[in-house]
Design a protein around this nucleic acid. Structure first.
Lengths: 228, 228
DNA sequence: AGGCCTCTTGACGAAATCCCTACGCCCCGG
DNA sequence: CCGGGGCGTAGGGATTTCGTCAAGAGGCCT
């Protein structure tokens, strides 16, 4: 699992971005100022740092400089200022890429992927095997381990599947699945689960009628059983 | 262990919810007003806050706002008011989820699980040993400590077993088991207990006829005896 | 508008679980 | 010796829950 250190002085932004990144399978550590950012980089060894330049204690560019004195960890900079100066200074100091606010989460994710790839961060994607299929919940792809065959999953199918595979071996209660995927008003609609689990089995299980990885626990919920 | 800060101005509710949450393995800290809630958040570093909006000193939404100025800790809001305004204000201020009174404990627990999960709070596994079996009541798994063998328990079996293993070494009265698992109208149906305890023994005890961990206390109830 | 994809909803046989009855055992006191 | 209370085991019918087919509803792109 890839660890990202998020550095921003606004708690709301930290919160929103954390939720998004965790949903994509990243492990997220947050810091609200430069001091903590430097400390956490040392203790948590993040694979990637996403850094807002406007920090309360230390100037963002200075943070980059201090990091670069001892670690080559990739750094993606965020900044609200549109002037190019920041960008130049940040890149000079050793940042790897730069995103200007306001930005879409997809843009940030794309930059993060690009930077980690360039740095050869162990492409240890949070990929999961279901039979002969390789499921990458971060990239949202399913492809056959041998051939180049791929499977397409819909948004709802991904949501449901992610809920299951991120808790390998654990029972996930029907209630949890329904509230998370369809919303709290759907807690009683268990037939949605049957419907969509059935679809996932048809797309991913070798023998959909005898599932080996997407298991039913009658009356309780479902369980993703990883390969032994 | 996950620490939950419970904030509510009614002592009975605090007490009832504390008991329930502790039985599920949470560590619980309580506060009866906003001032204490803010102070305890700083000193106890809870992993999750469950907050009633109607507080005697500070408005609940204001409490959320003050918390959010410095911490991204997940917040689940409780409110008796049915109007949507509260909900919107609370979520705007930075709450993560919302439960309207009256609510079932299961619903609250589901929301708590969803929120802590989204925030990447790591849930420890209260795993219990019964002979050569390792029982994980959170994941709902039973697996052999040496081999990869597993045992499957049904919903009712899990319910009953959880009641026993969460009170290690203590006698659990027949009436308590029946009330909790089958409901208050079944307090006289002691043969259900014999039936299901028998099934659990066959699945978990080395010698079901001579149980060493799921013990009968004739006329009173049953007791889970942990390994020495 | 038309077609495609996805989500929602209904219906029904199949499977798993639960509920319930029956029966035998042990211990104890009458 | 007998009978009763409490316990453990077995088995089958009843009920709930599940899987799947099928089709309608709604959104989005062409």
């Amino acid at each position: 699992m890839i660890t990202v250190l998020l550095v921003d002085d606004e708690p709301q932004i930290l919160r929103a971005m954390s939720i998004n990144l965790r949903a994509r399978g990243y492990r997220v550590v947050t810091a609200a100022d430069g001091t903590r950012a430097l400390a956490l980089t040392a203790t948590e060894h993040p694979d990637l740092i996403v850094l807002d330049l406007g920090l309360p204690d230390i100037d963002g560019v200075e943070v980059i400089r201090r990091l670069r004195s001892w670690t080559p960890v990739p750094i993606v900079v965020l900044s609200g200022r549109r002037t190019g100066h920041d960008k130049v200074h940040a890149l000079d100091a050793g940042a790897d890429d730069y995103v200007t606010k306001p930005f879409g989460i997809e843009e940030l994710l794309a930059r993060m992927r690009a930077v980690t790839r360039r740095h050869g961060v162990r492409e240890e994607r949070p990929t999961v095997r279901i039979g002969r299929w390789e499921v990458d919940t971060a990239a949202r792809t399913v492809r056959n381990a041998e051939s180049e065959e791929t499977r397409h999953l819909t948004k709802t199918e991904w949501h449901l599947l992610t809920m299951l595979v991120t808790r390998p071996g654990r029972l996930v209660a029907q209630r949890d699945l329904l509230t998370e995927v369809w919303g709290p008003t759907y807690v009683a609609e268990t037939h949605y689960l049957r419907q969509y689990v059935g679809q996932l089995r048809r797309k991913l299980e070798d023998d959909p009628a005898r599932p080996r990885h997407l298991l039913t626990e009658p009356g309780m919920g479902y369980r993703f059983q990883p390969e032994p």
